[in-house]
Simulated scan of single mutants.
Amino acid sequence: MTDETGNTQELLSSLIQELRKFSTMNLFFMEAVASKLHLNATDLKCRDLLNYTGPVTAGRLAALTNLTTGAITGVIDRLEKAELVERVQDPEDRRRVIIQPISRRTQEIRRLFQPLNESVSELFKQYNEKELHIVLDILVGLNTLYPKESLKLSDNK
C-alpha cells in the first residue's frame, strides 16, 4: 500500500510539473502569436476572454483578469489601436463604456493558430473517446479552479 501511495504522489508531482511547463510553453506561444499582431500575450488573452464573455465593461474585464483598472485601460487602448475591440457607450449608464470585440481580424488570428490547432488535433487522435473525456473533464476543472485561485490571491493583497 505504501508503494502505491508513493507512486501516486510521484505521479501527481509529475503531473503538476508538466502542467506548469505547459503553462510556460503556452505563454511563450501566445507571446509569439501576439507579436505578429503587434500586441503582447496579456492583450491577446484579454481579447480571447471577450470571445467567451461577450461585451463587458472595462471594470468587469479588469476584475475577470485580476488586472488593475490602469493596466486594463492600457490593454484596451492597444486592442482598440489593433482594431480588435471598440469602446461603446453603455446605454444604461453614460459614464461607463462597454468593451466590445470586433471580428474584422478574426480570420487573421485563426490563421495564426491553425498550425497549432492541427498539431493538437493530431495529438488527441492518439487517445480513445473515454480518455478524451477525461482530458476534457480535467480542463473544465482547471478552468473552474484557476479563477478561484486568482481570487484568493487578489483577496490577500
Rank of each mutant, 00 (worst) to 15 (best):
residue 140 V to R: 13
residue 99 I to H: 04
residue 129 E to K: 14
residue 136 L to G: 11
residue 18 E to Q: 11
residue 55 P to G: 00
residue 7 N to M: 11
residue 1 M to L: 08
residue 97 V to C: 10
residue 63 A to C: 01
residue 91 P to W: 00
residue 53 T to I: 01
residue 63 A to H: 06
residue 139 L to M: 10
residue 134 I to E: 14
residue 44 L to I: 02
residue 61 L to Y: 01
residue 11 L to N: 01
residue 150 S to T: 08
residue 144 T to M: 08
residue 71 A to P: 00
residue 113 F to Q: 05
residue 69 T to Q: 13
residue 140 V to K: 14
residue 147 P to D: 05
residue 95 R to H: 03
residue 130 K to Q: 14
residue 127 Y to C: 06
residue 48 D to F: 11
residue 25 M to G: 01
residue 149 E to C: 14
residue 20 R to H: 05
residue 85 V to D: 00
residue 39 L to V: 05
residue 116 L to I: 03
residue 153 L to S: 15
residue 133 H to I: 06
residue 79 L to T: 03
residue 38 H to F: 13
residue 110 R to K: 15
residue 32 A to S: 11
residue 43 D to E: 02
residue 152 K to N: 06
residue 42 T to Y: 09
residue 111 R to Q: 15
residue 37 L to Y: 05
residue 152 K to D: 00
residue 88 V to Y: 05
residue 102 I to A: 06
residue 141 G to T: 11
residue 145 L to F: 14
residue 77 D to F: 09
residue 19 L to C: 09
residue 28 F to Y: 15
residue 120 V to H: 02
residue 115 P to N: 01
residue 117 N to Y: 01
residue 101 P to R: 10
residue 112 L to F: 07
residue 35 S to P: 00
residue 27 L to G: 08
residue 2 T to A: 15
residue 26 N to Y: 12
residue 38 H to S: 09
residue 123 L to G: 04
residue 45 K to H: 04
residue 73 T to F: 07
residue 35 S to Y: 02
residue 157 K to W: 04
residue 128 N to T: 09
residue 51 N to C: 07
residue 96 R to L: 14
residue 66 N to R: 12
residue 61 L to C: 05
residue 101 P to L: 01
residue 155 D to C: 12
residue 47 R to L: 03
residue 27 L to V: 04
residue 121 S to H: 01
residue 76 I to S: 03
residue 27 L to P: 01
residue 124 F to D: 02
residue 40 N to I: 08
residue 33 V to E: 02
residue 149 E to L: 15
residue 101 P to M: 01
residue 62 A to C: 07
residue 106 T to W: 04
residue 137 D to V: 00
residue 44 L to M: 14
residue 131 E to S: 13
residue 91 P to R: 05
residue 109 I to L: 13
residue 98 I to P: 01
residue 9 Q to V: 08
residue 94 R to W: 06
residue 1 M to A: 09
residue 31 E to L: 02
residue 18 E to F: 06
residue 100 Q to A: 08
residue 47 R to M: 03
residue 134 I to D: 10
residue 106 T to S: 13
residue 36 K to G: 03
residue 44 L to N: 09
residue 156 N to C: 12
residue 23 S to P: 00
residue 154 S to V: 15
residue 55 P to M: 04
residue 85 V to A: 04
residue 157 K to M: 08
residue 49 L to T: 15
residue 61 L to G: 06
residue 156 N to F: 12
residue 29 F to T: 04
residue 93 D to G: 08
residue 3 D to N: 07
residue 55 P to R: 09
residue 74 G to R: 08
residue 150 S to N: 14
residue 36 K to T: 06
residue 107 Q to R: 12
residue 140 V to H: 09
residue 86 E to S: 13
residue 61 L to R: 03
residue 31 E to I: 02
residue 41 A to R: 05
residue 104 R to H: 10
residue 142 L to C: 07
residue 95 R to N: 10
residue 66 N to Y: 03
residue 52 Y to F: 08
residue 72 I to P: 00
residue 47 R to S: 10
residue 110 R to D: 11
residue 64 L to G: 01
residue 109 I to C: 05
residue 73 T to G: 12
residue 119 S to E: 11
residue 12 L to F: 15
residue 90 D to I: 00
residue 128 N to R: 08
residue 116 L to Q: 02
residue 95 R to L: 04
